[in-house]
Each structure stands twice: as structure tokens, then as C-alpha cells.
Design a protein around this nucleic acid. Structure first.
Lengths: 127, 127
DNA sequence: CAGTATCCCGCATGATACTG
DNA sequence: CAGTATCATGCGGGATACTG
């Protein structure tokens, strides 16, 4: 059975395109942060805890390319660059936030499941 | 401003725990596939196009540990192992599906944004 | 059938240094 | 300030072979 027969018009791969973005920790954090409003590079760098300059740049380029945010550079000195979510980016934030909310709500259940699993397992795998 | 002041009780990291799962291509595909009902290992292997035996095993272990699915082994020969979503797994499927639906709905916009971006960019980067 | 056990490679990412 | 360039590396994940 070919994939095209199981899923209409390769939507599976299509969805993965966006979903794998959500899998990218930095992308999610950047988009979420920008959900609070327009920000400049250095502000983002400070707001997104732990991100390196390189990864911030890379992430921003990717999100810009996919149309989730717009980049505005001012030809001043020192330079200033603002980043802001597009309508698309803002819309993406909805299902992503829903997922985040689910995560927050159900986190305890996952933690408990892990604890239980590890308890069951560690008896076979001493040390 | 400390992170704890911006986000209540480190929920940011908490959410990432689940979200990064969604970032894992195989996890999403396995959970989605199991959304159709209980399946055995070999069925999953065939259903999830392109997954290696190793990754299927690894993915299933992770999902089991987090409480998204249950594993049932039959002491027959040849052995038979069934996998099935738990209530938690089924619930997770909702926000994940919503995201997938969003992806399918808006994929064209992303593609177009990329086309436009690449058009703008390639003029500076010949070849 | 349902896994484990190895080997191995490529890329994502971090650290660091330099620049318009 | 907002990047780019370069180097180093850890490990995700594929291929393959073996096993209860």
C-alpha cells in the first residue's frame, strides 16, 4: 500500500513540515516570545534563555523564510533589527499554545508514568 | 527579569518536555497510527513508512515510559506484542491532531513564503 | 516475531573569534 | 548591535547482524 493511498495527497509529509518546526525547541521559544510583541535581536537573545547567538540567528532566518515572522532592519549605527510575528506566525501560536497548555496540564501524569516505569524497570537493571 | 517571574513555576521547561516529543517525527507518526487502534509490532513497522526496527523499538519504549501507550507481550511462540494508546495518549492526540490540521490547512502559505523568500535571497546569492 | 547489539556517519549545535 | 565564519563534537539514527 502506497502512502498516497493511505493519506490524501501526501498530507502526512506536509504536516510533518510544520510539526518538525514545533519539535525545534528554539523555534517554539522564539515564536512564543515574539507572541508578546515586536522585539529586537538583543532583546530576544536575553528573553530566550540559553540560546546562542548563532542559533538565534539560524532560528530567526528559518522562521522568516517560512513566513512566520518579519525582519525589519534599520540602517542606523549601531544597527537595529526588529522581529515581529506575521499573521501566519500568530495563527500558528494558537495550536502550539494549545499543545503547550496540554503539556502543562498533564505534565504530572507523564512524570508519574516515568516514575512508575523506571521503578518497574530498574529492578531488572540494577545500578 | 528571571524566567520564574515571566512564567509561572518553570512551566516553560515542563511544556518543552512534551513539545519536544511532538518534535520527534517518529513519535508523532507512531501515536497517530495507534490512534486507529491496537496494533502489534510488525503491523506498526509496516504502517509507519520508513521507520527502522531500531527506531520503532526506541520510540515505543519512550512512549511507553511516558505513559502514552501500553505494551502487552504474549508468551507465545513466535512472540506477539501489542501496543495500544492509553487514555493519556489518546488525549495527547487531540492537540497534536489540531496542530497537524493547522499544518495541512496552512501549508500552502508556508510554501509560498519560502518561494518568495528564496526569490528575494537568491538574487544576492547567485548559483 | 520482536527485539538487542554494534558499528558508523552526518549533521545539528555550542564555543569562540572576527566584522560592517 | 547584529550578525558571519570557523572549528570541534556529541549523538540521533541508519544499516547490519545476531538471538530467545
Amino acid at each position: 500500500m502506497k502512502p498516497s493511498e493511505r493519506h490524501p495527497a501526501g498530507q502526512c509529509q506536509v504536516a510533518n513540515d510544520v510539526i518538525s518546526l514545533v519539535g525545534d525547541k528554539w523555534s517554539v521559544l522564539v515564536i512564543s516570545t515574539l507572541g508578546q510583541g515586536r522585539m529586537r535581536f538583543s532583546e530576544l537573545k536575553r528573553a530566550v534563555e540559553g540560546i546562542s547567538q548563532k542559533m538565534l540567528t539560524t532560528t530567526l532566518r528559518g522562521l522568516e523564510r517560512d513566513g512566520y515572522l518579519i525582519r525589519t532592519a534599520f540602517a542606523t549605527v549601531p544597527p537595529r533589527v526588529d522581529y515581529e510575528l506575521t499573521a501566519l506566525g500568530t495563527e500558528l501560536l494558537k495550536p502550539v499554545s494549545a499543545l503547550g497548555q496540554w503539556a502543562i496540564t498533564n505534565h504530572a501524569r507523564v512524570i508519574e508514568a516515568r516514575r512508575a516505569y523506571d521503578g518497574r524497570t530498574s529492578s531488572n537493571q540494577p545500578q
